[in-house]
Amino acid sequence: MDHQTAPAPLLDVRDLRTWFHTFSGTVKAVDGVSFTLAPGEVMGLVGESGGGKSVVGFSLLGLIDPPGRIEGGEILLDGEDIARASEERLRRIRGREIAMIFQDPMTSLNPVQTVGAQMDEMLRLHTDLDEAARKARCIAMLESVGISRAAERLKAYPHQFSGGMRQRVVIAIALLAAPRLIVADEPTTALDVTIQSQILRLMRRRIAQTGAAMILVTHDLAVVSEMVDKIVVLYCGKVVETGPAREVIADPSHPYTRGLVDSIPNPRDRKPRLAQIPGAVPDIRNLPSGCSFRPRCPRAQAKCAEVAPALAPTRGTLSAACHFPIVEEIAMTGGERA
C-alpha cells in the first residue's frame, strides 16, 4: 500500500443536512456540515444548545426519527455512504463500526437487564465468539474500565451502580466490539468534577489503546481542550470554525469562538467583567439573513447581512466561516456590552 501524505479519512461527512419538519416550520438543525476524521483521531464537536451538535452525532448513527430526516449530504465511512444505508445495514454498523456513548447512562442501559446480559448481547450480535469467550471478554472489558469484582458485577442491574460507575459500564459496552469510531454525546456532563476527570482519563487512555477514532460532542470547551486533537465549532446548524484544538482555543479566528472562549472565566487573567456575547442564540426556524451570528457579532458589517460566509482558511491551520475573521494574532480585549 502506498504511503500517502494524509491518511485516508475514516469518516468523511460532506454537506450533511438534517432537518426536522415540525408544525411551526422546518428546523434546519444541521445545515451543510462537513468534516473529516482520520483513523484514531479525536475530534470535538462544540457549540451551545441549539447549535446542532447532538443532531450531527445522531445522524452519524442513523438515529434520526421523524419528523427529522437527513435531507442531503453524505456520511462516508471508509468510502461507504451510510446516510443512505438500509436500517439492516445500519444495525450492523452500530456497535461494530460506530458506537455511541450518551450523556445519561440510564438511557443507553436497559434497566431490567443485567449488565452482563447487555454486554453479552453486544458480543453475540457482532462477533462469533462462544459463550465462555464472550464472558471472559466482558470481564476483561469491565476491569479495563476500572470496575473491580467484574465477574460479580456482570450479574448486577444498572441501578445498582452509581452514576460514575454506570458511565464506565456504558464505555465498556461501547468498546466491546472494538468499533473504529466512538461518538460520545456529553459523556461527562451529568457527572461531578472528580468523577468527570476519572471518566475523561479513562476514555483518553482506553481510546488511545484501542486506536479508535472519537467524536466528542460537548458544550464544555475545557473538557474539549483536554481531550481532542481537532475542534469543529457549530452555530445554528453550521460549522463556523475548525482547526487543531490548541489553536482554536488559544487564538480563534471566528468572532463566535472568540466570544465563547472569552466568556469562560480565566483565573490567570481575571477581569472585573467577563467578556460576553450579547443577545441569545436566534430561533433556528427564523434565522437572520446572511451570517447567523451577525446580530450578536461585534465585527459585523453590511456584507454579513447579505451573503452567508463559507468556510475558508483564515490564519495558520484555522478555517472559519466569516467575512471578517480575526486574522491578527492578538486576543481581543472586548467585553463591554455591544
Partner: peptide, 11 residues
C-alpha cells in the same frame, strides 16, 4: 486538580 481548564498551563 480535577477541574478541567482551557489553559494548559493550569494543568
Amino acid at each position: 486538580s480535577a477541574a478541567p481548564t482551557i489553559d494548559p498551563a493550569d494543568r
